[in-house]
Design a protein around this nucleic acid. Structure first.
Length: 589
DNA sequence: GCCGTTTTCGGCCCGACTGTTTTCAGTCG
């Protein structure tokens, strides 16, 4: 590869290190050598790094926990040359197609290397031929059954591979359905989803579900015969794996009630977090597995029923699942420096809500105000689209009509403060709908990007900063414009925008929709240090049911490490109004 | 390959399932 002027992104560096892991597995002939585990840990650390790793010096890289001298040098080599010599060397020995073979479920490095050594098979076509010729069963350790299993796995290829991780929005829908369906089984006592879904990862490999029961057989049988099951990957006494809707693998694990906490902790992960917890346990004469935290010497159970009790026994506060990435959160937690997790009941208002006054809203103004009241909120901003969004937006005349409608509605909801707002549309040049005089009609606005997603980074940054500095704008809605799995984020300098926002008294939105989760957790961590920057956790609800998406917005705030003090819609109404007034006061002065 | 309230060498988390073994290896999470 030729060196390029563009420095590689953290994602590109991680991709290179993942290649390194795969080739090293082949070289070591095992899936878990200490070397590959070390690389894996470095990958986790870089994934979590808020800044560009490509800009770092050797000593800065080595200062990252989990990155040592060897990996740091490989990263620098990749940044400077565009490739890593160890990978180049291993490619000579193992053709890249062998990496594809390792993605087939059931085929690990040992078997893939055996295929090359004994049969000269290095790619999928060769593997298919070998299976057709019944050659696989001649390999040491393999038999007829293994050959058939691998043949079946090839048909399922893709379901398990890295490229087909499912966006969290889709995975959550399936998980919710499976949890609901399985809950109807009388033998099920407790049930919860765990894994990367519970950690609020943006994309999900497998869905992990945990149940407690005293009748595992019935639960497992019910699980493998659920509606939508297209393949049963395996089933034992305590766990089973299925593929549902031909779309995603779902793993079920069954334990007893007394073991629920230990099992939930174990299956929530991440793997790195679990390893650090177990190491910590060992240091205290304890051992941790999916059943309990126990004494090593006599096996006496110390804690098992709840996650809280296990963390406590390890000298730690409970750590919110979204932060369990094995990237130093244990150290921060032990020092008492983790922010108190943001939860929905800490929020007093929702600052981004649509009604059927704009074309895409599906609930009436009254339905929304009633639903907001029912959820115990003290204030809400009705933010239907501005006129620039041709399909959905409100003309000036309609804005005036809505103002009257909201005035009338306020009498019906005396306990609720209703702001007549708008979701303005940020044009390619950073200007918004209407004109400055007319914008004074609104008591509050959120401004968002809905088009021109492919401008160059400088233009996008300037565009967002112009909106941030607009005196009529209070919040920037879904700042990156991404839709997970469907549309990439716009390219922009999030730090520059956030600094401008802090200066201007404009908040950045944490959009709660599972397709958005925008700002991303990575972006949040990047801008968290900017003094005075505030966030608004908003639902962007287009229907009353979507007000419950606040669950995900708060989870995203937790994942980004945002403390509640930085969330404007947690403020009591008077303080919140003072925050809004400060913006207008500042712009006039 | 990483790392240091046992440390710069010698350790490194834990268990289920499957198929091939008759006590275990490979794979997976």
């Amino acid at each position: 590869m030729k060196p390029s002027n563009m420095k590689p992104s953290n994602e590109a560096i991680v991709a290179a290190l993942r290649q390194l892991v795969a080739y090293t597995k082949l070289e070591d002939g095992q899936s878990q050598s200490f070397r590959t585990r070390a690389y894996d840990k470095a990958i986790d650390a870089i994934n979590a790094a808020p800044n560009d790793v490509a800009d770092m010096s050797l000593s800065e890289l080595k200062a990252i926990e989990g990155v040592g001298d060897s990996t740091a040098r490989k990263i620098i080599e990749f940044v400077e040359r565009g490739s890593i010599s160890k990978i180049d060397r291993l490619k000579q020995r193992f053709p890249p197609t062998m990496l594809e073979l390792m993605k087939i479920p059931g085929l690990g490095p040992k078997t893939v290397v055996a295929l090359q050594d004994h049969l000269g098979v290095v790619d999928l076509a060769g593997l298919r031929r070998a299976i057709a010729n019944e050659q696989l069963r001649t390999l040491p350790g393999l038999g007829k059954k293994s050959e058939e299993k691998i043949a079946h796995s090839i048909e399922l290829l893709g379901i398990h591979s890295d490229e087909t991780r499912t966006p969290i929005f889709d995975a959550m829908r399936i998980a919710t359905r499976v949890v609901n369906d399985l809950s109807r089984c009388d033998a099920v006592s407790q049930i919860a989803y765990a894994g990367s879904l519970r950690r609020l990862s943006e994309t999900i490999g497998d869905i992990d579900i945990l149940t407690t029961t005293d009748d595992p057989e019935t639960v497992l049988e019910t699980f493998t015969s659920l509606a939508g099951v297209t393949t049963i990957m395996g089933s034992g006494d305590t766990k089973a794996s299925i593929v549902i809707d031909d779309a995603i693998q779902v793993d079920l694990r069954v334990v007893s009630d007394a073991e629920f906490g230990a099992a939930l902790l174990y299956f929530t992960g991440s793997k790195g977090h679990n390893i650090e917890l177990r190491q910590r346990a060992l240091g205290r004469g304890l051992t941790l597995n999916e059943y309990s935290l126990s004494q090593i010497d006599d096996g006496a159970v110390v804690a098992a029923a709840t996650e809280e009790s296990i963390y406590e026994a390890l000298g730690l506060p409970w750590i919110t699942p979204e932060l369990r990435e094995g990237i130093g959160e244990l150290t921060i937690a032990e020092a008492g420096l983790l922010p108190k997790p943001v939860v929905p009941k800490m929020l007093r208002g929702d600052l981004h809500v649509h009604t059927d006054w704009s074309g895409d809203g599906r609930s009436t103004l009254d339905e929304m105000l009633q639903a907001v009241t029912d959820r115990g909120l003290e204030y809400v901003a009705i933010t239907d689209h501005g006129e620039d969004l041709a399909m959905n937006g409100l003309s000036r005349e309609r804005v005036r009509e809505q103002q009257a409608a909201i005035d009338a509605a306020r009498k019906r909801y005396p306990l609720l403060t209703v702001f007549h707002g708008a979701e303005l549309n940020i044009g390619p040049d950073g200007t918004v709908d209407y004109d400055p005089e007319f914008l004074e009609v609104f008591e509050f606005t959120v401004a968002s990007i809905h088009s021109h997603f492919d401008l160059d980074p400088d233009a996008q940054t300037a565009r967002l900063i112009a909106a941030v500095e607009n005196p009529a704008v209070n919040v920037i809605g879904h700042p990156s414009g991404r839709k997970i799995g469907a549309r990439p984020a716009i390219r922009f300098d999030v730090e520059a925008v956030a600094e401008a926002a802090a200066d201007a008294g404009t908040a950045l939105e944490i959009n709660s929709h599972l397709q958005r989760l925008d700002l991303s957790a990575t972006n949040l961590r990047t801008v968290l240090g900017i003094e005075g920057l505030m966030f608004a956790i908003s639902t962007d609800a287009h229907h009353t049911s979507e007000l419950d998406n606040i669950t995900w917005g708060t989870a995203q705030a937790r994942k980004g490490g945002v403390p509640i003090e930085r969330v404007v819609n947690s403020l009591p109404i008077r303080e919140y109004m003072a925050w809004m007034a400060q913006k207008r006061g500042r712009s006039e002065g």
